[in-house]
């Protein structure tokens, strides 16, 4: 655990700084009320009302998120494999190639079906 204590120290410091900054700006800055100022910015026209929960998000982003998850998981397995690769050698290589190939199948599918195309 000692390895992580310094991280905590730095994190506390950074948090303190950030919170302080956010807090202080409330006092340092002026306060002049103006209705328009509090509206969302939309190039000067009346802002579009946003539905509760931030509106609807294009599906494309979800696909990207899903893909990211898939590959992140792949990375999770690649890291320990890489670190201990020298112990496993050829066996490790073969197994990992199989693993990558399997994930690659999904990847090829998504690519061919246009999952990676943005418009």
């Amino acid at each position: 655990m000692e390895l992580y204590t310094p991280v905590l120290a730095l994190a506390l410091l950074a948090t303190g700084f950030a919170v302080f900054s956010v807090a202080i700006s409330a006092f340092t800055g002026p306060k002049r009320y103006n209705r328009a100022k509090l509206d969302s910015y939309e190039c000067g026209i009346e802002p579009t009302p946003q539905p509760i929960g931030g509106g609807r998000i294009p599906v494309k982003y979800f696909i990207t998120a899903m893909l990211f998850i898939v590959f992140d998981i792949e990375i999770i397995f690649l890291y320990p494999w890489a670190v201990h690769f020298d112990a496993m050698r050829l066996f490790g290589l073969i197994e990992m190639v199989l693993f990558i190939a399997t994930v690659f199948v999904a990847y090829a599918y998504v690519w061919r079906r246009g999952g990676l195309d943005w418009d």
């Binding site: 599906v59 979800f62 998850i69 992140d72 999770i76």
Partner: peptide
């Protein structure tokens, strides 16, 4: 724990897809 992460991820992917369809 590693495997669980994988499974959780797969579950997220599938779940998100299903929930999105319903949501849409």
């Amino acid at each position: 724990a590693f495997f669980v992460m994988v499974v959780a991820a797969a579950e997220v992917v599938i779940g998100l897809a299903i929930i999105m369809t319903i949501f849409r």
